[in-house]
């Protein structure tokens, strides 16, 4: 078994042994999507939502919810704890680079998130929901959004030495991000100025781009650029600031 596979397998086992995280990050949003899809009436276009149905507006929020928890709460918590415990330093004493662990964590996060995404698209479709009308655009928007979320998470893991502080800050960022993504007030219902702010956050841009793709359009260039911008800036900062011990 190669070191990479062994590492991903090992980290995967450890993730599954943390049932709280799994329930909160995957099962909860998955269940919410399925239940929502099954409620009659969520399909009716609403004038309040700019002609979109409630499901169309809310699905992107739930899809990104999984990635937001994994990237902003789980990832910084795991990485800062590994640093505190000396796991990263111990890896430095072996022939593999400690970067392998980072890569394994990112790969694992993406894997779990993509599995959830597929289930969140397939299961509602089976019970009669409409899949996103522009699937390629949906996937591109999802990956760009994922990049910006993971970048923010990696930056949190780089900025904080103390695992508890990092986890706390991650939770705060998660809620702020979900607010702008429209978890509580859907983007079409936001006042104009708030929606503009939301446009420039990773969460808001991702929801907007996924909503456009869901109703068959290509996302606005603004939203794509915002996500890519956050992705590039946070990744560069994280690479520069990350410490192994």
């Amino acid at each position: 078994m190669s070191a990479m596979t062994a590492m991903i397998k090992s980290e995967g086992k450890l993730l599954v042994r943390n049932p709280g995280v799994m329930v909160w990050s995957t099962i909860l949003p998955l269940a919410a999507t399925i239940i929502l899809a099954a409620i009659p009436g969520v399909w009716a276009p609403s004038d309040d939502l700019g002609g979109l149905s409630f499901f169309e507006v809310y699905r992107p929020v739930l899809v990104m919810f999984v990635l937001a928890i994994l990237a902003m709460q789980v990832l910084p918590d795991v990485l800062t704890r590994y640093r505190e415990m000396g796991v990263l330093k111990r890896l430095r004493t072996t022939p593999v680079a400690p970067g392998l662990l980072l890569f394994a964590q990112l790969a694992l996060t993406l894997l779990v998130a993509v599995v959830c995404l597929v289930l969140m698209l397939v299961i509602p479709t089976l019970i009669g929901a409409e899949p996103p009308q522009n699937l390629p655009a949906f996937i591109v928007a999802y990956l760009l959004g994922g990049w910006s979320f993971l970048g923010v998470g990696m930056l949190i893991a780089s900025l904080f030495r103390n695992a508890k502080v990092a986890a706390g800050f991650g939770t705060l960022v998660f809620f702020v991000m979900q607010f702008f993504a429209g978890l509580w007030i859907q983007r079409p219902l936001m006042p104009g100025w708030l929606r503009t702010v939301s446009d420039y956050t990773p969460g808001g841009a991702a929801t907007a781009a996924l909503t456009d793709a869901g109703s068959g359009q290509w996302p606005q260039l603004l939203h794509m650029a915002v996500m890519a911008g956050w992705g590039i800036v946070t990744s560069l900062l994280a690479i520069r600031l990350f410490k192994w011990e």
Binding site: S10, L14, R17, M85, G86, K89, R90
Partner: peptide, 13 residues
């Protein structure tokens, strides 16, 4: 091979 001072492993490994 190095055994480092105060180096732990994940609790559930």
């Amino acid at each position: 091979g190095i055994q480092l001072q105060e180096s732990r492993l994940p609790e559930k490994q």
